[in-house]
């Protein structure tokens, strides 16, 4: 388990997202009202960046085909997506936000 610093919390205000590259592929970090979540950035349906999408509450809507995913669980909430995306553990240290890129998994 290796947590890596991604950004400081004020770099990603509530409702916003940040796309970051990692050995596990691109990861999207979301700020949901002050709570941070990290998921696989690439939509499981259409090969598109979810960080580019529209965040409403804890649901991210892909701009390409409007599939929605829960950023807490990575689960697909709407068609046309049928498969989930991986979620990554997130940790806060002071103002820093860290992600464990080795810890990617599908939620149960």
């Amino acid at each position: 388990m290796t947590f890596v610093r991604v950004c400081s919390e004020n770099e990603v205000p509530p409702g916003e997202a940040l796309r970051t590259e990692s050995a596990a592929g691109p990861v999207a970090l979301f700020n949901v009202d002050g709570e941070f979540f990290a998921i696989e950035d690439t939509c499981s349906h259409g090969q598109w960046s979810l960080a580019d999408g529209y965040l409403t509450g804890d649901k991210i809507e892909c701009t390409l085909h409007m599939a929605k995913f829960c950023v807490r669980t990575g689960k697909a909430c709407t068609l046309p997506a049928t498969k989930p995306v991986k979620i990554f553990p997130v940790e806060r240290r002071g103002e820093d936000v860290l992600v464990d890129f080795d810890g990617g998994r599908y939620a149960a």
Partner: peptide, 12 residues
Amino acid sequence: AKAFTCTYHGWA
């Protein structure tokens, strides 16, 4: 817009 997606079959 971030993309333009056809509403028929979804070509984007």
